[in-house]
Computed example of a mutant assay.
Amino acid sequence: MMVGTLRALAVLAMMTALAGCIDHANDPVLLAVGVPVNPPAVAHGLCMTDGNAMYREARRQYELRAQLTGYAEADELEAETIARAAAHRQYVACLSGQGYRTLYAD
């Protein structure tokens, strides 16, 4: 019984220590425009999920277009650029729908 409690406390302490290691330096500041639908943390999480899905879809579509046009290998840099741009557009559009505007620190 005592060992289980100590083990649970050790896991909790490790999780607390590791939670401080999350890097939010490049996250945008969400500026509320009007009346937001969700709190900023919830909106960011939802829209990151949408952006990640768009990234994967854009990569898949690029590879399919490369196969259809007869290129043996897709250009990795171009595929990455197109996928990142599509993901960013989706993220910004999603946040706009949630009632936020993104501000990035340069």
Rank of each mutant, 00 (worst) to 15 (best):
M1D: 13
G34M: 09
V42M: 09
R101M: 13
A93N: 10
N52F: 11
R56C: 02
V42D: 12
Y71E: 15
G99R: 00
G97C: 05
G97M: 04
Q61G: 07
E73F: 15
G34I: 05
A43N: 02
R60V: 08
Y71T: 07
L95T: 10
I22F: 11
L64P: 05
G45F: 08
H88R: 10
Q90L: 06
P28H: 05
I82E: 13
Q67F: 07
A72C: 07
C47W: 00
R65V: 04
L95G: 03
R60W: 02
D23A: 04
E73P: 00
H24I: 06
L31Q: 13
A8S: 04
V37A: 12
E73L: 14
A19M: 10
A85T: 14
Y104R: 12
A87T: 01
A17C: 06
G45Q: 07
L68T: 12
A8F: 04
A41L: 13
A66F: 02
N26C: 08
E63C: 04
Y91A: 03
Y104N: 09
G45W: 01
V11Y: 07
L68V: 08
A13Q: 05
A79D: 03
A8V: 00
M14V: 11
V37C: 05
V33S: 10
D27E: 13
V33Q: 14
V29R: 11
P39D: 15
L64H: 08
L77I: 15
H44K: 10
N26P: 00
H88V: 13
L103I: 01
D75T: 09
R56F: 03
L95Y: 09
M14C: 13
Q98M: 15
I22W: 14
D23W: 01
A85Y: 03
I22A: 15
V92A: 12
T81Y: 10
T16D: 03
A66Y: 02
M14T: 09
S96C: 06
Y71R: 14
M14H: 03
E63N: 12
R60A: 13
Y62C: 10
S96G: 15
Y55C: 01
R101T: 10
H44N: 07
V11S: 02
Y55V: 00
Y100T: 01
Q67E: 15
A58C: 03
I22T: 12
P28Y: 06
L77W: 04
A8Y: 00
A32G: 06
H24M: 14
R56D: 12
V33P: 01
M1W: 12
A17V: 09
M2Q: 09
N52K: 09
Q61W: 01
T16I: 09
E57M: 13
L95H: 02
V33I: 15
P28T: 07
G99S: 04
A79Y: 02
G20I: 08
L77F: 13
V92F: 07
M48E: 09
L103C: 07
M2G: 11
P28M: 01
N52T: 10
G34F: 04
D106S: 13
D27N: 14
A25Q: 08
D50G: 12
Y62G: 04
T102G: 07
R65K: 13
L6Y: 01
D75N: 14
Q98I: 05
M1S: 14
V35E: 14
M48K: 05
S96A: 11
P28R: 04
A105D: 09
G97T: 02
D27S: 08
L31C: 02
G45D: 04
V3F: 11
V42F: 06
L103P: 03
C21G: 07
